[in-house]
């Protein structure tokens, strides 16, 4: 059985009444997972001996710039054993800007999630150290959101007084 089918089968047998949708573009396999089970699903993918997705390469979010279902979390995980990269997508839902942190599964998720928090303002439950990554703590905006202008917002960064 091909690895892609195996991954989907394992997820389906473990989470019985959950819908998984898959897509493939340019040979990249992607599974969409509901945000409720993200941590459990990641744990399964990492700890399963056959799949062994031991490397979390990157975590990011996409701002679709629309009112409903605005943010999607994207996880890139890699299995060194199978030499296979899997993309996990997870829609946050209408008006939700919160998701569980996967730091308990992969430690490398720590900074990646901090960056997402900084850039998109998505909060992570159970994150050990949720601070801004790049921008100063006093900064009010989230730069990679679509409403943030490229030129920046004048006065948003506190400068020394004259």
């Amino acid at each position: 059985m091909e690895l892609k089918e195996k991954i989907l089968l394992k997820l389906k047998t473990h989470f019985k009444d959950v819908d998984f949708s898959t897509e493939e573009f340019r040979g990249e396999y992607c599974i969409t997972i509901p945000n409720k089970i993200i941590v459990d699903a990641c744990e399964l993918l990492k700890n399963d001996e056959e799949l062994a997705f031991n490397l979390c390469e990157d975590i990011t979010a996409v701002d679709w710039g629309r009112l409903n279902n605005r943010f999607t979390m994207v996880y890139f995980i890699f299995s060194m054993k199978n030499r296979f990269r899997l993309k996990i997508k997870c829609d946050l839902g209408d008006g939700v800007e919160k998701i569980d942190s996967v730091t308990s599964v992969w430690k490398s998720a720590n900074w990646a999630e901090r960056e997402v928090y900084d850039m998109y303002g998505i909060e992570f439950n159970n994150h050990p150290d949720l601070r801004r990554m790049y921008m100063p703590e006093s900064f009010e905006y989230h730069p990679l959101r679509k409403e943030f202008p490229v030129m920046g917002i004048p006065g948003s960064l506190s400068l020394p007084k004259k």
Binding site: F25, R26, E28, T60
Partner: peptide, 20 residues
């Protein structure tokens, strides 16, 4: 329309670009 992630082995490590 689509999205790709492409990673190469850079001198410092894995450099990846995710383009939507």
């Amino acid at each position: 329309i689509g999205e790709i992630y492409s990673a190469v082995e850079n001198p410092k490590g894995e450099l990846g670009f995710y383009i939507v």
